[in-house]
Design a binder for these strands. Structure first.
Lengths: 204, 204
DNA sequence: CCGCATCCCCAAAGATACTG
DNA sequence: CAGTATCTTTGGGGATGCGG
């Protein structure tokens, strides 16, 4: 893509990661290195040539790096550099903004393994620095543990939230405290919901 | 642009503002409404048809709105909606990330009126919630005032920083406390520089 | 099978001219 | 001033090929 040619940090950032698919590619690599085929599979709609081009561009831009797995694996993987990992706040703020108009999840939402952890990490964790809350969403388990996201249900969670993805959306995005089943200390969940209030979607 | 068709807040956000020029257009509108010609002038390299298309897309997406100025002005202006204004954290985090690899400003940097305020607002203000620091950069004046940016030099600033854009870059981005002239309390400037340390550029 | 490179087609970007 | 119309060029999307 032609560079913007402006001395501006935003324009420069977009020169590096502003092309189509680039930020989604970074999103996929946020939770660990992936192979070419893994990326191609997760980025449905991104054709092979575009993926190859993006990978080269992002590598040239210092956002990702390729690494040869030690034998006998043989294959190579892509991973975020320190620069690339530093994009986390960008993805988080984009996600928070996107939630304002995303709408509730469809009934037939496919929830691949690990989605709950990723969802909590990119959209919620920063707002719950002290909470210890477990989530049981459609059988997947993850927890907020004092500012970080951990797999499974905490033994000593202050509260456990149970529901479908739709319930969780109503609870965390729309702020409806009654949307999901809450065991334990409702107040600590209410506190989280309150912290998420700015940026709540308004009627369109 | 074809939508990503993923139930993901990041993908949805990029569907709305991920196209070329979109975020730069929002950047320009962040500090007040602008007319078509103003935008066309500031977004050098963005042709008229593309600008018209983006304005329509962003309006359809609820990010910006057009407003007829009351007579006798007659012309219409574009401004951010509440949705669009909520993109501020996205632009701020993008700017902070872009600073990691932007490099120092060129000698012949053109500094249009108001650039200093905008620069402080998008890249620094969030890190200085208590500071009262004045900046005199190449003749432009602006100040940090307890978490907000104000034009001019504060009467009762704790410190005043004076220098060229290059000096300010060395001070705030590279963290070189000796790069610019500091009158008053050096410690409060040092504190700001310290707060900006995460995300400092590393050697490429 | 994995990791691309090539080819074709079309949609969108860039540049320029022109109009209500 | 605020766009639309037209033309050319670039890049994305989809399918396929091909070496390791």
């Amino acid at each position: 893509m032609k560079p913007y040619n402006q001395y501006c940090p935003v324009a420069h950032a977009l020169d590096l990661v502003g092309e189509r698919w680039s930020l989604l590619l970074v999103r996929e690599l946020q939770h660990g290195p992936l192979r070419y085929s893994d990326l191609h599979e997760r980025l449905e709609g991104c054709s092979t040539n575009v993926l190859a081009t993006r990978l080269k561009d992002l590598e040239a831009g210092g956002v990702i790096a390729r690494r040869k797995l030690p034998p006998p694996a043989g294959s190579s993987v892509y991973e975020l550099t320190e620069e690339g990992a530093a994009l986390a706040p960008v993805l988080a703020s984009l996600a928070r903004w996107g939630l304002r108009s995303l709408g509730p999840p469809p009934e037939d939402l496919e929830t691949p393994s690990g989605w709950l952890e990723k969802a909590l990490r990119t959209t919620v964790v920063a707002y719950a620095p002290e909470a210890r809350i477990g989530f049981d969403v459609s059988g997947e388990h993850a927890s907020l543990d004092r500012g970080s996201v951990v797999p499974g249900l905490l033994e000593d969670a202050e509260a456990v939230v149970t529901g479908t993805p739709q319930d969780i959306y109503c609870l965390l995005v729309e702020g409806d405290i009654g949307a999901a089943e809450i065991e334990g200390d409702r107040a600590v969940v209410a506190e989280l919901v309150e912290a998420l209030a700015p940026g709540r979607p308004v009627a369109p």
